[in-house]
């Protein structure tokens, strides 16, 4: 039979396929290399440089004769990190960490509620819907730094807010204290609730109308429909939106900086104090340590969020289900 003679060829098909695959692999590698190089340059290098800087400190000894500063930097091991957790600088850092976290938890919670409401409004068919959609999106289109300045104007001692509230003693929103924290939360909510609204709206639009019709036939109340149908079906989109907002808010800089001003205990976030250390004081070591901490903090939060709530950030869910 010819089977014996045909036996050898059986393994032979793979080699050409492999080599073709290897060839394709090489081509792919060649095609991807420029992108990877650019990424290495603009992403990997700065991150690694920041990690390295976090272990160094600028020398700051002064020559008592000439008053000139020592030059260069010294390796200080983990000192920048230990300073961050204990001691004087530690208070400032822990306070900033608390602000960063509290802003994130409170602001994002409010934004989710408002954002979903906005999406529900935008989703309904009614006259002037286009106008409402455009109006809701305006805050999102305003650059944050500009929004910060506008809100500063609104919150100043003789500003609109105090005129409207018409209190006996006007609230000094931009002075250090709880009111400054509230002002930042208000401005941040105004600015980014539309972002959640927009993403949720996209999620709403893919929900089939038949599901709602079925619910109606079964006599479900609007409230029940929302909890049992709308929310579960919009959840994947909503989770991605929330994750984005959380990561964004953890890095919040512009609003506290422009609306309240740096150096206020109630609103200084980690990025604000990192900026102050690096740009104002020229101390890149501690600034990098703060940034590295924030980097890890953000990474951990994102990881936990994805694991716990199953946010489908990379769009892999469909593939997994298919298996």
């Amino acid at each position: 039979m010819s089977t014996t003679t045909e036996a050898p060829p059986t393994p032979s098909p793979p080699p050409p396929r492999q080599s073709r695959r290897a060839g394709a692999g090489r081509l792919a590698a060649a095609l991807v290399t420029p992108t990877m190089l650019v990424l290495a340059l603009v992403v990997a290098y700065p991150v690694l440089a920041a990690f390295r800087l976090a272990f160094y400190q600028k020398k700051d000894g002064i020559d008592p004769e000439t008053g000139l500063l020592e030059q260069g930097e010294t390796f200080v091991g983990l000192e920048n990190f230990t300073d961050m957790l204990v001691g004087d600088a530690g208070d400032r850092f822990r306070n900033a960490l608390f602000n960063t976290t509290s802003f994130t938890v409170v602001a994002v919670s409010i934004e989710v509620v408002l954002g979903v409401l906005m999406a529900l409004v935008m989703h309904r068919a009614f006259k002037g819907r286009a106008l409402v959609r455009a109006a809701i999106l305006v805050p999102w289109a305003v650059p944050t730094a500009i929004a910060g300045l506008l809100w500063r104007w609104i919150f100043q001692a003789d500003g609109v807010v105090n005129k409207v509230l018409d209190l006996e003693t006007p609230i000094l929103w931009t002075t250090d204290g709880f009111q400054a924290w509230v002002a930042v939360v208000i401005a941040d909510t105004w600015k980014t609730a539309p972002f959640i609204g927009l993403l949720v709206l996209a999620g709403l639009q893919v929900i089939s109308n038949e599901v709602y019709e079925a619910a109606k036939l079964d006599g479900a109340s609007p409230w029940k429909t929302f909890w049992a149908i709308t929310l579960p079906l919009v959840k994947p989109t909503l989770l991605v939106a929330v994750l984005f907002r959380i990561l964004d808010t953890l890095r919040m800089f512009d609003l506290p900086f422009t609306l309240i001003g740096p150096g206020k205990d109630a609103t200084d976030t980690i990025t604000v104090i990192a900026y102050e250390e690096a740009v104002k004081f020229g101390k890149y070591g501690p600034a990098s340590a703060y940034s590295v901490f924030l980097f890890l903090y953000v990474a951990v939060v994102a990881f936990v969020f994805v694991k716990l709530l199953g946010a489908d950030v990379l769009g892999t869910r469909a593939g997994k289900k298919g298996r």
Binding site: V43, P46, A49, L53, Y56, L243, G282, S291, V313, L314
Partner: peptide, 19 residues
């Protein structure tokens, strides 16, 4: 969005110049 996330993560901490 996933790609944007990765970039955002990285840019958030790399805003420090070198000394």
């Amino acid at each position: 969005r996933g790609a944007a996330l990765a970039a955002a993560l990285v840019l958030g901490v790399s805003a420090c110049g070198s000394s």
